[in-house]
Nucleic acid binder design. Structure first.
Lengths: 207, 207
DNA sequence: TCAATAGTGTCTGTTAGACATTATGGA
DNA sequence: TCCATAATGTCTAACAGACACTATTGA
């Protein structure tokens, strides 16, 4: 499953057949390919670009055809930057906003799971940074996080967390966009590792 | 991969062949079985009991034999309570402490991944409660969490978090164990859902 | 001068962890 | 009486979010 930020909303790449509901792109791997390689090739073929970040989601056991020949689908989630996602997609494939993906039951659940996984990884892998150019303003970075997360963030808190994590360093360039005060450009430059969060939390129970 | 608390340490069930290094139990699913069913059957056959909690870890692409026939391993992690794990294991299978599992490269990495996943799920699924009897003292519960997590917790904080999450309710029974003041017995009785944690955190970056 | 955006200082409520204290039974 | 464990109250540092304010540009 491929995600991309486009026009201020998170989009997902779906196959739209002439009849029937939309579904996610898939492929049956050829011999000699590892799972991540197959997933990257599928991305290149359907979206015309390779994901900046990709991770395995889950394996699904499909209907088993006959004894001894198990059929398993392995789902991946990846993100593609806005410029890379502007290339040509495969025939029948289209970027649609995740809010209106129009996927049927099982595939809709996979999409939800993919979004959850991606949002959790946002704190541990440079997902958002792979979607931005090498230098960017902190407002651009925050907007990218908000787009991926699906909710808005507090500006001051966002910058404090960013500083505490030593993830970015300022360049000596500024950029003026339209009206207001110009913003300083930053680059991704992780320096330290935050020690793991302390304590235990008891959050939601899936019962 | 099956985990069980035994004698104050977290153990993992491994197959110990007569020669060569230990490895994790595995099975090639029969036709008509779903993935979770196969995993549960494997657990019952090797450990003599069904896991109280189980979840899929990851799929691994093995060597691909020939074009069109992909070979994929799907790893599961599950936990088995101490009494249930006292039953007879399959021939060649044995519970060993995770610190001395003696697994070879790839399987050692799977074990690490399984522990990470299980520890994350501890906050979202009643993993620890499935390993305890229906009523238990808060100290027993805390010791179970510490055993699963691999580190010690702060008693007062543990109880505050527990209360804030509305996970347990007291019974009107007490139990005296050896010397000190008797402990009140509690039962697992989740009442509420904690709303998701606020804000954004930028933790470790796997680069 | 006004509007819009960048960037920052301060305050407050929440919470994790440290520490201390009380409670209560067995040895 | 002493000791071990349960249970809880209080203090503090860290931090997220709210709010307000300054800074700096284009219209």
């Amino acid at each position: 499953m491929l995600l991309a930020p486009r026009e201020g909303a998170l989009h997902v790449l779906v196959d739209k057949p002439l009849r029937g509901s939309a579904h996610l792109p898939w492929v049956s791997p050829r011999g000699g390919e590892t799972l991540p390689t197959s997933a990257r090739l599928l991305a290149r073929r359907t979206a015309g670009a390779e994901p900046g970040w990709m991770e395995q989601l889950q394996a699904f056991g499909d209907q088993l055809k006959h004894p001894g020949s198990a059929s398993v689908s392995v789902a991946y989630v990846g993100v593609i930057s806005a410029p890379a996602a502007d290339g040509r997609t495969a025939r029948g494939a289209a970027w649609v906003p995740v809010a209106h993906a129009g996927l049927a039951g099982r595939h809709a659940a996979i999409l939800e799971s993919a979004l959850d996984t991606m949002r959790v990884r946002l704190d541990h892998a440079p997902v958002a940074f792979k979607l931005l150019p090498p230098t960017f303003t902190l407002s651009e970075l925050q907007r990218m996080y908000e787009l991926l997360l699906g909710w808005t963030l507090h500006k001051a808190s966002f910058r404090r967390s960013l500083q505490a994590a030593y993830l970015v360093e300022p360049t000596d360039e500024w950029r003026s966009e339209g009206r207001g005060r110009p913003a300083q450009l930053y680059r991704f430059a992780p320096r330290k590792r935050r020690q793991s969060r302390r304590g235990v939390r008891f959050d939601v129970l899936g019962h």
